[in-house]
Amino acid sequence: MSVLDPVCGMKVEETTAYRSLYRGKVYYFCSQNCKKEFDANPDKYLREGPHVMKGCC
């Protein structure tokens, strides 16, 4: 099943190794960069939705 990367908005598979558990919910990412970005500031991305990022995907 594919889901959205909360940072860049890309479609990613749930099988990816880039994931975070935040407030009891699992988030999936396209890359280590997006995961890092999310972990540093999870609330921002959950509040504002995906940003189109430079140098991410």
Binding site: S20, Y22, R23, G24, P42
Partner: peptide, 13 residues
């Protein structure tokens, strides 16, 4: 629901 991990991981949850 069980989570086991580093303190920083726990704090996020």
């Amino acid at each position: 629901e069980v989570v086991v991990g580093s303190p920083s991981f726990a704090r996020k949850n």
